[in-house]
């Protein structure tokens, strides 16, 4: 028996070595391990052996049959792997070839800037407010302490649609509307973005249409320090943690005191460079303490309440932040311009 097994094993090994595909291997399997297979045939020999010999030979037979099965299976795995390898090589690609072009959308830079500012202020408990773009003379001017024939009306050339209605020249009427809606009671924290219009010819720095964000805080004991702290937080959020602000006295009829606010130049850290015209500072917005007459006209008790307000130009902010030099770009919507804003931006806005 041992002899036969040895011979058969040799034959099998030679046969397996010669096989090159799965089909031939299957034939081979049948040839050796099938019902009438050569190995299966050995089983017949066992019948003729003594009980004692049968025991030894039986083990030999079983071991051999297992070994043969394993050998064929191993060969099968090898053959399949080889076949797959051959398949894979035909699927070879050049990963440096061009990708499928998938369109990317983008938020408009003005909306993006508004979102950044609003996110900050909403997180501080400010309510977002909107107001009409076609506004009454009353709300746009008179209720903001700018009666008819006030020389300060020259600061904003207006576009009228009727004797008493105009395209709002500023978002400040939202201050009045909010105070009114609040029924002259209790504290206010509001932020109001929107389009405004001036009778200006369009050029690199002027636009007859632009966007502003208005903020108003009214409460007991509001002071200029609060305005400063709030604006510092804002410029640090928008332009980086190191930014400082500077107040310069100014004049707006609806605030007293009135201030122009500068941010330390984020290109040169306030050292002075061509971007900030060597001054180290960039003008970003107008602000002040709400004029008592404005509080009063909206029904607020000026003895009990005080407030601060500011209005910032969204274009101005975006132009500074991204180094845009022509305000008309925002409204031309050149796709190459819009494309610039399809990606994220991390802090450190140099």
């Amino acid at each position: 028996m041992e002899k036969e097994i040895k011979q058969l094993k040799k034959d099998l090994e030679q046969a397996i070595a010669k096989v090159n595909d799965v089909k031939s291997l299957n034939d081979l399997r049948v040839h050796y391990l099938g019902k009438k297979g050569k190995i299966t045939g050995l089983k017949e020999m066992l019948k003729e052996l003594s009980v004692e010999d049968k025991k030894t030979a039986g083990k030999l037979f079983n071991d051999f049959r297992q070994e043969a099965t394993d050998l064929i299976e191993e060969k099968e795995i090898n053959l399949k792997r080889k076949a797959l390898d051959e398949q894979l090589i035909t699927e070879k690609i050049d990963p440096t070839l061009g990708a499928t072009e998938i369109k990317t959308g983008s938020i408009h830079p003005l909306d993006r800037t508004i979102k950044e500012v609003l996110d900050l202020f909403v997180s501080m408990g400010y309510d977002v407010v909107t107001g009409p773009e076609i506004e009454s003379d009353e709300y746009n001017f008179a209720r903001l302490n700018l009666p008819k024939d006030h020389p300060a009306r020259d600061m904003q050339d207006s576009l009228y649609v009727a004797t008493d209605y105009l395209l709002r020249t500023q978002t400040s009427p939202t201050q009045v509307r909010t105070m009114e809606e609040n029924k002259a009671k209790g504290p206010i924290r509001m932020i109001a973005p929107g389009k405004v219009y001036r009778k200006d010819d369009d050029d690199a720095t002027h636009s007859h249409q632009f966007m502003q964000i208005e903020a108003l805080v009214v409460d007991e004991n509001i002071n200029l320090g609060h305005l400063k702290g709030t604006l510092e937080l804002m410029v640090q959020t928008l332009f980086g943690k190191e930014r400082k602000i500077r107040f310069r006295p100014s004049y707006f009829p609806f605030t007293e005191p009135s201030l122009e606010v500068d941010v330390s130049c984020f290109r040169c850290d306030g050292e002075g460079c061509s971007f900030c015209k060597e001054s180290g500072w960039l003008e970003i917005l107008g602000a002040g303490m709400v004029h008592p007459a404005v509080l009063e006209m909206s029904g607020y008790d000026k003895e009990k309440y005080s407030g601060f307000a500011f209005g910032l130009g969204v274009e101005r902010l975006a132009m500074l932040k991204y180094g845009i030099n022509d305000i008309r770009q925002f409204y031309q919507n050149h796709l190459h311009f819009l494309e610039l804003f399809e990606r994220i931006d991390k802090e450190g806005h140099k």
Binding site: G105, S106, I107, H108, L110, D111, E133, L159, L167, K195, Y197, H208, Q209, F330, Y331, N333, L335, L338, E339, E342
Partner: peptide, 8 residues
């Protein structure tokens, strides 16, 4: 892509 155009 979002655009913003003049109202007038």
């Amino acid at each position: 892509r979002q655009t913003i155009n003049y109202s007038l």
